[in-house]
Design a protein around this nucleic acid. Structure first.
Lengths: 195, 195
DNA sequence: GCCTTAACTTGATCTGGGTCAAGCTTACTT
DNA sequence: AAGTAAGCTTGACCCAGATCAAGTTAAGGC
């Protein structure tokens, strides 16, 4: 499956609508393939996030660095996910986040102006956008709740059942940071859960 | 200003578009005014959230109860906010949340099916919906980040500068729960910040 | 206006998870 | 294949914020 076929398939699956040939040509004209090597940055703190990108292959992390120089991972992303800092992308403000490739990364990227065009002219794209924002609202609410109520151990078990791929694809210290834990705590927690 | 005028004004302000007379009639036909007395529930855990409501007057809290019987407030809502559990509302699943009036509450409520109609037929409504979901995405991302990085004190100061009305309208123990703190901790924290 | 209940404060103590440090393992580099 | 770096584990210690308890203030109900 080519990069674009992956995107087309994703849009149709998510929206429940078909793309016409015209739709596909429009998407192909305005989504640009881009490759990043492991450790390269898709977005750097302080820059405006000009692009939104669809991951065709590889993985990435979105993180901030606090005053003490500690990194905090807010999001881990795999194939068929979007990477972007929405705040910066919509409002054109400098981003507070970094987005870094954790493996060699292949994406299809586009700008805000072009996305507006897609939303206006491609019904499947606009339906997809609604579905995503709906899912997103639900997921963040859940994660919020999880962060408030659950202990470290419960959050780890939650991750295992909701995103088992993460354990294969991301090093443990990244998972720890994503869960808001120190690497040491996650290590100990795993040991105890097998007793 | 009548209940509906408040809603019309809100939609126009948020969307940046005007409502036609037809639009207004459609809204008036399908948003039902409802009053709840202080302590009454708009939504109870386990029920499906059939309505979304626009607060015309009063305030509410969205909270869950954990295994130990402790309440956790996820959201505090005032005039010109919406109350709903999106997950339950969209997916028709039983809600894990309670939504309770903290003051006598006047809302305008509508169902999922009717909202779909508004989105289809009223451009200002659909634009408003996009703006809200955009703001929502940004706000939750910020709150997520805040929860991961900031100390209790920093989160409290953040609340003071972002939502100063909250201090007037909500009792301190509710604010503590919203911030993920025990009432005792918030009390101590306030004392120290005035030293 | 009195009484009950809810909200807030203050102190004493406890604990989950962080921090620091050192050793161990796995995996890229050249 | 050896060398170096990155990731993981384990132990000792520490601290922010929770919990428990008791007293104080404020506010709704009749």
């Amino acid at each position: 499956m080519s990069n674009f076929e992956t995107l087309f398939y994703y849009i149709q699956e998510t929206s429940g609508k078909l793309l016409s040939e015209d739709d596909k040509h429009l998407l192909m004209a305005h989504f640009k393939p881009k490759k990043l090597r492991k450790r390269q940055y898709f977005l750097q703190e302080g820059d405006v996030c000009k692009y939104i990108a669809f991951i065709v292959k590889g993985s990435a992390r979105t993180f901030t660095v606090d005053d003490k120089g500690h990194e905090h991972i807010l999001k881990l992303s795999l194939e068929n996910w979007w990477i972007v800092d929405f705040e910066s992308f919509y409002l054109l403000t400098p981003s507070r986040f970094n987005i870094e490739a954790l493996e060699n990364l292949e994406v299809l990227q586009s700008t805000n102006a072009q996305i507006e065009e897609f939303l206006k002219h491609i019904p499947a794209f606009s339906a997809m956008s609604n579905v995503i924002s709906q899912n997103n609202t639900i997921a963040t609410q859940k994660r919020m709740q999880a962060a408030m109520i659950y202990t470290a151990e419960e959050r780890y078990e939650d991750l295992i059942s909701n995103y088992p791929q993460f354990l294969q694809r991301f090093p443990q210290n990244m998972i720890a940071s994503y869960l808001g834990l120190s690497p040491e705590t996650l290590s100990r927690l795993k040991k105890n859960s097998f007793k």
